[in-house]
């Protein structure tokens, strides 16, 4: 009995962790390439979640919203890059924080303005069904979200390692000026990276809409989770932050079972501060200071 509780907590945490991983991956990617901390990252995710809401309002199954969530948020990201991010790449740190924080306010309250402060519950073909594996019952929509997350992660990974653009992305992350000297169009690659980073988060948002209620402030919590994952993953490592997110998902679901479900959020915040204090270079990363 106890073991079943433990096992289902682990499965649950693992699946949510995979979705967190998609959000975190984009944050790490943008950070690594542009050295911009996107405080609005969670809110781009929420945009994707509302696309799923829109689909179900229109009577289309929310599962079909996934590619649209990616595409719409990708385009929003490219537009954001061209209008805002490009201008703050070399700005003082305060302006960078202020600008992405302003994006957070604009998206979060823009969504609330349009869709209202209410909470939406998205139904889909998967809703309500469970898969039984031995004594465990796994919620279908979560299983689906986890599997899609893995698939998207693999696609992004292949994009970064196997395509010319992916190569350019990694070259810029290593050394922006050297990449520029080699004739890489840094501006273009940046806009793709920002679009891709938030687009993947948007896709994750549509997955989130399948498994939990959607409301305008949802992004705050996911953004925090993404930051914690990125810290765990060693800052700019895409793979590392994906792994970090899985760890967060697991520790969250375990603490919900063994400590208290209401303190779930507080636990994520606390983990965040503890990690920063005791493992400032991340679990999987290291970097040195140069004087």
């Amino acid at each position: 009995m106890d073991l079943t509780v433990l096992a289902s907590a682990i499965v649950d945490g693992l699946l949510m962790g995979l979705v967190y991983g998609l959000v975190a991956l984009g944050l790490a990617l943008i950070w690594g390439v542009m050295n911009i901390i996107n405080f609005a990252h969670g809110d781009y995710m929420v945009l994707g979640a509302y696309i799923a809401v829109l689909f179900s309002l229109l009577g289309v199954d929310a599962v079909y919203a996934l590619p649209f969530a990616f595409a719409v948020v990708y385009l929003a990201g490219v537009a954001t890059y061209k209008l805002v991010i490009r201008r703050i790449l070399d700005a003082p740190f305060v302006s960078q924080i202020a600008a992405t924080f302003a994006l957070l306010l604009l998206i979060r309250y823009g969504v609330e303005l349009v869709a209202g402060p209410r909470t939406w519950i998205v139904e889909s073909v998967l809703s309500g069904s469970v898969v039984r594996v031995g004594p465990l019952s796994i919620v279908c929509s979560k299983l689906f979200a986890g599997i899609v997350s893995i698939a998207v992660f693999v696609v992004v990974y292949l994009f970064l390692t196997r395509t010319y653009t992916g190569l350019a992305v990694r070259a810029i992350a290593q050394n922006r000026s050297a990449a520029m000297l080699q004739g890489i169009d840094v501006d273009r690659v940046n806009s793709i990276v920002f679009g891709l980073g938030v687009g993947v988060a948007g896709l994750a948002g549509a997955l989130v809409a399948l498994v939990q209620p959607v409301f305008p402030e949802l992004g705050g919590f996911y953004c925090l989770v993404a930051f914690v994952s990125v810290v765990l993953g060693g800052f700019t490592s895409v793979v590392g932050s994906f792994l970090g997110a899985i760890i967060i998902g697991l520790s969250e679901s375990l603490s919900a079972v063994y400590i208290s479900p209401t303190l779930k959020n507080a636990i994520a915040f606390t983990v965040f501060i503890l990690v920063l204090l005791f493992r400032p270079t991340g679990l999987f990363g290291r970097f040195g200071r140069r004087v």
Partner: peptide, 23 residues
């Protein structure tokens, strides 16, 4: 009726404009 949300949007717009135009 949604003044709270509008308030947030206006705040965001001001912050964005200031940080881009007059940092």
């Amino acid at each position: 009726s949604r003044y709270a949300a509008l308030h947030g949007v206006v705040l965001g717009a001001v912050l964005l404009i200031v940080s881009l135009m007059a940092p």
